[in-house]
Write a protein that binds this DNA or RNA. Sequence first.
DNA 1: TCTGGGGTCCTAGGACCC
DNA 2: TCTGGGGTCCTAGGACCC
Length: 427
Amino acid sequence: MKTVFAHVDCNNFYASCEKLFRPDLRNTPIVVLSNNDGCVVARSKEAKALGIKMGVPVHQIKSEIRQYGIQLFSSNYTLYGDMSHRVMVTLEALAPRVDVYSIDEAFLDITGIDKAVSFADFGRQVKDTVYQNVGLPVCVGIAPTRTLAKLANYAAKKFAATKGVVDLTDPARQRRLLAIVPVEEVWGVGRKLSVKLQAMGITNALQLADTDLATLRKRFSVVLERTARELNGTACIAWDDAPSPKKQIMCSRSFGQPLQSLPDLEKAVAHYATRATEKLRGGQQFAGELIVFIRTNPFRTNVAQYSKSASVKLVNSTQDSRLIVQQALGQLRSIYRSGYDYAKAGVMLSELVDETGLQEDLFEPLGTENLGRAKSERLMAVMDEINRKSRATLCMARAAGPTAYVMRREHLSPAYTTDRAALPKVR
DNA sequence: TCTGGGGTCCTAGGACCC
DNA sequence: TCTGGGGTCCTAGGACCC
């Protein structure tokens, strides 16, 4: 039987999460800001209608904010993560297989479901159930490939007459939609590619679908060839039964204010290394390589710039925060130069393996090979358990004390759903 | 004054081997 | 005087995604 995908995507996800707990702002334009309250990363439909662009630095739209009374929100990932989880749990109850693609999207396998209910009716059922259970609006696109399902969702969002659900399983309908969708809206076609394609006279999705596959492969890559095949209804991205494990884990942040001193940077890097290692343990992985980077603010073109990274291979793959923090600080010291205003730092873990990929230590005495590891794992498990109950109770001494790097979050909403003290009150 | 964070995949080219 | 060819592995960089 031919596979059918449903693509479910939350509308203005972060903005909708904020509005859910602020019914007083129902018709008010709001935007959600990136870390450090830097850029706009989400907009309510009212803010979109005012022409506020995605990604714009907030200081560039100050006059609009004042003029239209746009409400600002700092990113509240604790809230969005919890709301996302609720949406996904709801979807998992509706379909036999769900691929969570990002914080606000998922693909559902709905092959054969049309024996019981029409695809469009199923889409409406998904939409209504999520709204009923979680309170967030979603759109649903249905098609024989993921790329077409994303495009169906684009249409569901763009055209009000669809009421948020588009069934694109019919090939004639596929071609009619492709003809009116600009090529840059296709999943997998970004800014650079769309410029090149337009130069070749390919401006809409249908023209891309009708381009010779060998030409696409030669002029671009197999990736774009695959996209064209998917637009023609041939599924190239199948279901992963075992989602592949992570290949790298990163923790990086811009600082709330520029940092100059090594001790201030050390505190930040120790903290990021700790966070990255927590994620590593969360996925039961071990890191074989560590990369540290620091950089100044590239947007401040009138001041001295510096950007450097350093990496080190870990002799034995590890998930021990003590070792990773120590190594990260060593790398930081090797690249630090005084006299710069640093704006950002980060720690990346790579060469990740699971337990079966661990090498035994050649230099441990026979019979005690795993003793050190067992001790380390017990210690880390205790740390994680305490920090799970009460966030950031235990940390490396290097990361402790007053921190100069904390980010700006001047418009942060409460953790409505994850902190008892912040529960919304109904009067 | 103020410009996010975290990922994946593919390709080209160099090093190295026989 | 003539100066190969094919294969693998690794890395850096670029493109994309949300």
